[in-house]
């Protein structure tokens, strides 16, 4: 029998050290390991955030006059190219076209769509035109996604993923600094 016995007792007296039976202890550990391995979740779920831009409650404060924020509009309706437009209200400030080069990766029979060129271009565009780059700025630049009705969801996620690859530092009131996406995405209704 497996056990820990440090001896003692001298044959007549009662032993001062008790013997611990190790077998149930090892059994318990093995059962625990088996349970944890069987119930473990090997896929890691996560999320991509988006903002539906619903107007808030009406405020008594008068509207602030000032320049309208610049938004990045991503036109992904064409099969050949992306069009990136910075718009201030309805006015187009800057427009860039980019060939639509998608990278398809098959992982465990699931097709993953990536747009690495788009990610690089968005990062460049944000460095030039982004308005909320300061670490203390609590707002983020807005990206508006234009897509046709037939585009499959995986392509939309590919574009949102490329958008969120551009990140910036954000210092929170407690002094903690974290990396956050430089854009917050929403959908165009058209």
């Amino acid at each position: 029998m497996a056990g820990v016995d440090v001896g003692g007792g001298g044959g007549k007296k009662r032993a001062v050290d008790a013997e611990i039976n190790m077998i149930p202890f090892i059994d318990l550990l093995l059962v625990t390991i088996s349970f944890l391995l069987i119930t473990a979740v090997w896929t890691h779920m996560a999320r991509l955030n988006a903002d539906a831009q619903v107007p808030g409650k009406p405020s008594d404060d008068p509207p602030v006059d000032g320049p309208k924020p610049k938004d990045l509009h991503i036109e992904m309706r064409g099969t050949e190219k992306f069009v990136l437009q910075w718009k201030q209200g309805q006015q187009v400030v800057n427009s860039v076209e980019l060939p639509r080069k998608e990278v398809k990766i098959v992982q465990k029979s699931v097709e993953v769509i990536r747009f690495p060129d788009l990610a690089v271009k968005i990062a460049e565009e944000w460095k030039t035109n982004g308005q909320h780059a300061a670490a203390t700025d609590e707002k983020t630049d807005r990206a508006v996604l234009h897509t046709d009705n037939k585009t499959e969801y995986k392509y939309i996620i590919g574009v949102i993923d490329a958008l969120y690859s551009t990140q910036r530092d954000r210092t929170f009131p407690g002094g903690k600094t974290e990396k956050i996406p430089a854009f917050n995405v929403t959908f165009a209704v058209n």
Partner: peptide, 29 residues
């Protein structure tokens, strides 16, 4: 992942109008 954008946008808009403007898309990391 194969659902068309029309359905995604309809669900997105409905969620926003129902008082859920912060929409998150669940993905496999």
């Amino acid at each position: 992942q194969n659902v068309p954008a029309l359905v995604v946008k309809s669900v997105f808009q409905t969620a926003a109008q129902s008082g859920y403007p912060n929409v998150s898309f669940m993905v496999d990391s």
